[in-house]
């Protein structure tokens, strides 16, 4: 049972990897960007667990900036994904402009909240 499930898992990961390898490069870049943001967020969570929550607003803004970046990047990824039928009439340029606007607002707020 255990072996079969681990074999299944291996199969699964192989299938996942091959399926993922087929995604276009620009989506992969976005994925990398998301991974970077999530990783930074995790580091901060570990850090706050170590040193305590004194400058809580800084922690919040730090983590939320990462989470926000990740979420917005995911949104962008959804919109520029050619396979996604829902957004066929949404031009990638428009999607990217929205993304930039959203990020500007996000970072403005973060700057306000950081200090």
């Amino acid at each position: 049972m255990a072996r079969s499930s681990s074999k299944d898992a291996q199969d699964l990961f192989r299938a996942l990897w091959s399926a993922y390898a087929a995604t276009p490069t620009n989506l992969k870049i976005i994925d990398l960007y998301v991974m970077f943001a999530v990783f930074t967020a995790l580091i901060q969570v570990v850090y706050i667990a170590l040193v305590g929550s004194f400058p809580f607003n800084s922690f919040l803004s730090g983590v939320l900036s990462c989470v926000g970046t990740a979420v917005l990047a995911v949104c962008l990824r959804i919109q520029v994904n050619k396979e996604n039928k829902e957004f066929k009439d949404l031009a990638p340029e428009r999607a990217f402009a929205d993304f930039v606007l959203c990020n500007l607002v996000l970072h403005l707020v973060i700057m306000n909240f950081l200090g």
Partner: peptide, 14 residues
């Protein structure tokens, strides 16, 4: 605050 530098770093790296 020195303790908050990682957060500043994170925000600016973002």
């Amino acid at each position: 605050i020195p303790a908050a530098y990682p957060y500043y770093g994170a925000a600016f790296s973002m």
